[in-house]
Design a binder for these strands. Structure first.
Ligand SMILES: Nc1nc2c(ncn2[C@H]2C[C@H](O)[C@@H](COP(=O)(O)OP(=O)(O)OP(=O)(O)O)O2)c(=O)[nH]1
Ligand SMILES: [Mg+2]
Ligand SMILES: [Mg+2]
Ligand SMILES: [Zn+2]
Length: 580
DNA sequence: GCCGTTTTCGGCCCGACTGTTTTCAGTCG
């Protein structure tokens, strides 16, 4: 099999590092072009190594040169240019660049002036006080670099966090800063706000009259183990072992501009700033302003600024400069789906299954509280070891639901199950017993390592099964733990599209399944429907729905493709059509 | 290296912090 997109991206990142040394600068135009190519691959659901030269150059941000490098990597496992550069720059110099504060210029200076090309050599040179003799470096720089060695790798890909962990830390930091004097607003930005699957650092934006006070409180938070820098408008700290948190403080009238800046992505920012220039304006984190007069054109809200750039507001989850700006310009960007548009949840567990931690009636109470109009109770079916329900217990649950229905006049309760897709694509129970359910989610909980062909067959069989309304967390991935099954996505999308089976957008931050690139591809190539589901095992998990909605936005999914957004009658008609 | 209802060549985002410097380079967001 050809290399994965991940390995192509890793190879290109290596190319970026070596090219920074070759160019002698941290931001050359071609390293920026390489970075854009990595972004483009990251947002692409297809394997780039299976594409032709022509198909590759079709992708925005990938030109002839990069396309050839990708194909070269695909067939030889190497990029010749990288191998050549390794002769000039030993790989240990790349390691040196992983020390925060050491960029290509300083690493080249170390090589040229001190013949230092690795961490050991650097440590010795520091002991001999040689760094302070170099031009542009002094005693303080030497000391700072000495300290930074222990932070080697802080910014590297392999030390990125899972989004679930990052979100937790972000909320903790935010709640600690909320009480600081002078803080007007506080929210997270960066990759977290864009709902990236992995997070390099946590970016917090504060509006306040005075930055210094907030920065002061920030660098003194409990758990801070290093201060990377702190001034009057921003600071960077390391919390605990290796979690970097960046703070930016701006005056309240700049909130919109600052949110845009700090949310990124970098490539999206550059594209918007270039767009501003084309219109005789300039955009920074304080405002969009007239380039000649300096007059502020917009600053207060994101929507104001996008409007002055002749664009509709673009949802944060889409801001990757992978086509969203031109789509917004052409009016082909889907209106961002909002959580209020959802009328129900279609994947919900209760204490009837061993892993559910809230009772059926608590789950229903909470659903009503949240304003749901319909809900599918989908506890685990019997084939799931430990937590699955026997036919007898399923019938017991059905009786309880029937007895509870009169107490919930505003909520349409469907009795469903989360069925298990077996190795051969079959599901639990007998066909007759399955007929007794109102609804079915079918998920893969076993055999994650089968071939692409086998996995595709399993999914197709489940999609065709009339007892199945939704394919639950289709890839089965657990972010940071396992990648999920590999399957022929186009075949699955096509089959689900023609059968009317919906594909789940699982809201849990450890799943976010389907992935955003898959969603975008499904939306672009088929009419397939989606179900945004919490997979709640506790009443508190209903609020995970916001992540599912955000994931739908990130996948460019319009609300008319989401069955949760259907009116009750239409929703029930869709459910029934499938089951007859 | 990429790209084009201003361009197929000539542009390419903009600012904070640090340490060194005496006006700015390097790194980072
Ligand atoms: N205009 C501009 N903005 C930048 C640049 N670098 C970073 N930013 C903005 C956009 C980023 O989303 C935001 C936060 O920077 P980060 O380095 O934390 O990146 P981000 O959070 O997007 O990804 P991450 O997961 O942290 O690696 O700052 C830049 O070079 N120019
Ligand atoms: Mg970040
Ligand atoms: Mg950051
Ligand atoms: Zn489940």
């Amino acid at each position: 099999m050809t290399p994965s997109n991940e390995s192509v991206m890793a190879a290109l990142r290596e190319l970026i590092s070596y090219t920074k040394l070759e160019d002698g600068k941290s931001q050359s135009f071609r390293t920026r072009a390489y970075e854009k190519a990595v972004d483009a691959i990251a947002s692409n659901a297809s394997r780039v190594c299976d594409m032709t030269l022509a198909e590759l150059t079709e992708i925005d941000g990938i030109g002839d040169s990069t396309a050839r490098k990708i194909l070269e990597f695909s067939s030889t496992g190497e990029i010749a240019k990288v191998e050549r550069l390794k002769d000039r720059f030993p790989p240990s110099m790349i390691e040196l660049m992983r020390i925060p504060g050491l960029g290509p210029k300083r690493v080249l200076l170390l090589q040229d002036s001190l013949q230092v090309v690795d961490v050991e050599g650097l440590t010795r040179a520091i002991e001999k006080q040689q760094l302070r003799t170099l031009p542009g470096l002094g005693e303080k720089s030497e000391e700072k670099i000495a300290q930074a060695i222990s932070l080697l790798g802080l910014h590297s890909d392999d030390s990125r966090m899972e989004i679930a962990d990052a979100m937790e830390t972000a909320h903790r930091v935010i709640s600690e800063l909320e009480s600081v004097d002078g803080v007007l607003t506080i929210e997270y930005a960066g990759s977290l706000r864009r709902l990236s699957e992995t997070i390099g650092d946590i970016d917090i934006l504060v509006t306040a009259d005075s930055g210094s006070l907030v920065v002061e409180a920030f660098v003194n938070l409990p758990g801070v183990t290093a201060i990377l820098g702190s001034g009057t408008t921003k600071a960077s700290i390391v919390m605990g072992d290796r979690v970097q948190v960046d703070l930016r403080v701006v005056p309240t009238e700049s909130l919109g501009a600052a949110l845009m800046y700090f949310t990124g992505s970098k490539a999206h920012n550059i594209a918007l700033r270039t767009r501003a220039i084309e219109r005789g304006m300039t955009l920074n984190e304080y405002s969009l302003s007239d380039v000649n007069s300096g007059d502020v054109v917009a600053a207060k809200t994101e929507a104001d600024i996008y409007a002055k750039l002749d664009l509709p507001w673009i949802a944060p989850e889409l801001r990757e400069d992978t086509g969203e700006i031109s789509a917004a310009e052409n009016g082909t960007l889907p209106a961002p789906i909002a959580q209020e548009e959802l009328r129900g949840d279609l994947h919900v567990h209760t204490s009837w299954s061993g892993d559910g931690r809230s009772s059926l009636h608590d789950m229903l109470d909470a659903a009503v509280e949240l304003g749901m109009e319909f809900i599918a109770i989908t506890d685990h079916a019997e084939d799931l070891v430990m937590n699955g329900l026997s036919e007898e217990r399923m019938l017991g649950q059905r009786r309880e639901i029937e007895s509870l229905r009169p107490s919930y006049p505003t909520l349409t309760i469907l009795h469903g199950a989360e069925l298990n897709i077996g190795r051969d694509g079959s599901i639990d129970y007998s066909p007759t017993f399955l007929d007794g359910f109102d609804f079915g989610v079918a998920s893969i909980h076993s055999y994650f390592e089968l071939s692409v062909a086998e996995q595709t067959e399993r999914l197709l069989a489940a999609i065709e099964n009339p007892a199945v309304n939704v394919i639950g967390h289709p890839s089965g991935r657990m972010l940071g733990k396992r990648g999920g099954i590999e399957f022929d996505a186009d075949a699955v999308f096509a089959a689900a599209s023609s059968s009317g089976t919906a594909l789940e957008i699982n809201s849990h931050l450890k799943r976010l399944d389907l992935s955003a690139p898959m969603l975008r591809r499904a939306v672009e190539t088929t009419d397939v429907l989606f179900a945004i589901s919490t997979d709640a095992h506790h009443v508190s998990a209903y609020n995970h729905q916001r992540w599912g909605v955000a994931q739908a936005r990130r996948g460019w999914v319009p609300s008319h493709r989401v069955v949760n957004c259907l009116q009750l009658d239409d929703f029930l008609a869709w459910v029934g059509e499938r089951r007859n």
